[in-house]
Nucleic acid binder design. Structure first.
Lengths: 124, 124
DNA sequence: GCTTATGCATAATATTCTTATGTATCTTTG
DNA sequence: CAAAGATACATAAGAATATTATGCATAAGC
């Protein structure tokens, strides 16, 4: 279904989203301090009107990777009989988040030039 | 080298570029009517100050795929004893190019909201 | 009670790119 | 004039990153 409708029913062809997951996660964590996986998926869905939907099969391995790299630390909390795993940026993680967001803003500007889109994006 | 320097020496972490190759190629073809592969790699390098460098290992298979899908047609031209393969958008290819560029502009806007970047990008 | 939502996780597969390799001609430069 | 670099195509092996499918378990809504 490669027509105008696909943009109304809330999906990008998946290849575009590829590569932005880490940036999105780091941005959310840099704003909210502490989030758990499921919360991240819902927040992204909400903020993008379901245009970007993060799958759990992509998110959880990514979070584990960030933890292994020392970008985030985790805290497991019991909610009734269920478990919630909260993720928090380390100080090096906050640095990494800034870099990633700056990089993305710069990338967008480059793409705008290439595709004749306007105007430029700034991240301050 | 995850620091500010990597943005000056002209490289994005490769995952960002992933997914944008088809959009870039279709955009260039929609402007220049007729281009050959090597020309595309050089044009992108030039327009982006070497920030985006398309590798041949990615480009040629993509062009072949576009041809198989009827998005482009090819014309082989002899330059001396060498061969050049020119690619031209079909009419359905021109339609596809517009869709892809529109989709990307929309994606950028969504990401801007998500990442608190401003302002919005418009493609008219 | 049954369905949906919440919440974690992993494995198999698909997609898309990088890196490496191969072939061949043309141009520049010491 | 020989070597190096640029031009021009192509494909294969491997890496990275995502989707889809599956699994388990508790909580909430109807």
């Amino acid at each position: 279904m490669h027509n105008i409708l696909m943009y109304l029913c809330g999906m990008y062809s998946s290849e575009l989203i590829k590569g932005t997951l880490k940036t999105i996660v780091l941005k959310l964590l840099s704003e909210t301090k502490q989030m758990y996986g499921y919360e991240i998926t819902q927040k992204v869905k909400e903020l993008t009107d379901s245009k970007i939907v993060i799958t759990e099969g992509a998110l959880y391995p990514m979070l584990h990777q960030l933890e292994a790299e020392g970008i985030v630390t985790t805290e497991t909390v019991n909610i009734g009989k269920r478990v919630r795993k909260y993720y928090t940026l380390t100080s090096s993680g906050e640095e990494r988040a800034k870099e990633k967001i700056f990089e993305f803003a710069d990338f967008i500007n480059t793409m705008n030039v290439l595709l004749d889109l306007k105007p430029r994006v700034s991240y301050v």
